[in-house]
Each structure stands twice: as structure tokens, then as C-alpha cells.
């Protein structure tokens, strides 16, 4: 009788802890996600060095964690050729404590020969991956956007 009651209490505690962890981690993911995807959070600029022909893509933005636990965010940017081969890739990671705000800058440099080799003037693909993990890396959200470039007519 005592064993069943004690186990019942353990189960109830486990369920309550699970619900609290779910609410806390989901709230943290949601707030970081909202700050990352709000309209003016990130800016993207592409600059071509006229002398060398090298291309630099710069992704810059501010992130905020209004949740109650810390979160790790990694940002990865990549450029792919039209036949979906990676031409250039770079990533960065930041830790956001609860209530913290940080800015993130990611620069992707593509040498001139790769720009031509992959035919990026004709379009190419731009891939951005946001990876947000919280609760000691146990809960996470990943968003990968693969956008077709316009190219030069």
C-alpha cells in the first residue's frame, strides 16, 4: 500500500516537472524565435570586390531571449550552386542567457573563381539555418531557409 502511494507521488512529481519543463523551454524557444524572425531582426548585404571579384555576404542582426532559461543559438549561412553543391559555408554560435540580448554577425566570403565556377551570377541558392537549443541542449528548434538567388539578367 505504502509502495503504491509513494510511487504515485513520484509519478505525479514527474508529470508536474515535465509540464513545467515543457512550458519553460517552449516559452524560451518562442521568444528567441520571435526575436530572430521579427521583420527587422536581420539584415543581409552582398558586396562584390570590383578589383578581385570576390563576393562577401554579410548577415547581421540582434537577438533577444525573453525566456526564463538560457538558450544556444547557432546561425549557419551557405551558398549553393544551382546543382545544389555547397560553394561556401560559415557558421557562428552564441549563448543567450535569460533576458540577454546579443548581436550576431556572420560573413560568408566567396572567392571570385568559385563565384564563376558555381555559376552564381546566374542565381545560385542561399541557405540560412537558425538552430535554437535550450534546456541543456535537450529541446530545440531548427529553421532552414533555402532561397533561390535572382542572378543577373
Amino acid at each position: 500500500m505504502k509502495g503504491a502511494k509513494a510511487l504515485g507521488l513520484v509519478i505525479a512529481a514527474l508529470q508536474v516537472a515535465g509540464l513545467i519543463l515543457f512550458a519553460v523551454s517552449f516559452h524560451t524557444l518562442y521568444t528567441v524565435m520571435s526575436s530572430a524572425f521579427s521583420g527587422d531582426a536581420f539584415t543581409y548585404t552582398a558586396t562584390m570586390d570590383e578589383a578581385t571579384g570576390n563576393l562577401a555576404l554579410r548577415l547581421e542582426g540582434g537577438l533577444r531571449n525573453d525566456g526564463v532559461i538560457g538558450a544556444d543559438l547557432s546561425l549557419e549561412a551557405a551558398v549553393l550552386s544551382l546543382d545544389e553543391e555547397y560553394v561556401a559555408r560559415n557558421s557562428t554560435a552564441v549563448h543567450l542567457d535569460a533576458g540577454a540580448q546579443r548581436s550576431v554577425v556572420l560573413i560568408l566570403r566567396i572567392p571570385a573563381e568559385k563565384v564563376q565556377q558555381a555559376g552564381l551570377e546566374g542565381g545560385g541558392l542561399f541557405e540560412i539555418t537558425f538552430r535554437i537549443r535550450t534546456l541543456e541542449d535537450l529541446v530545440g528548434f531548427t529553421n532552414t531557409m533555402r532561397i533561390r538567388g535572382g542572378g543577373e539578367e
Binding site: A4, L7, G8, V10, I11, L14, Q15, G18, L21, F22, L125, L135, L138, V139, G140, F141, T142, N143, T144, M145, R146, I147, R148
Partner: peptide, 26 residues
């Protein structure tokens, strides 16, 4: 383009398995 979203809530799936096993013992 394409937008791919992945939610990883497997921790809660494992917690549910542990809870159900304990509930069966209960």
C-alpha cells in the same frame, strides 16, 4: 524557395515513456 522547420521535443517523449512505465508498475 523552401523553408524547413524541425521541432525537437524528444525529451518529452522519453519523459512520457518513463512516466508510463512507472504508471504500469503503479
Amino acid at each position: 524557395g523552401v523553408n524547413t522547420v524541425v521541432f525537437d521535443l524528444s525529451l518529452f517523449a522519453y519523459l512520457a515513456v518513463a512516466t508510463v512505465l512507472l504508471k504500469i508498475v503503479h
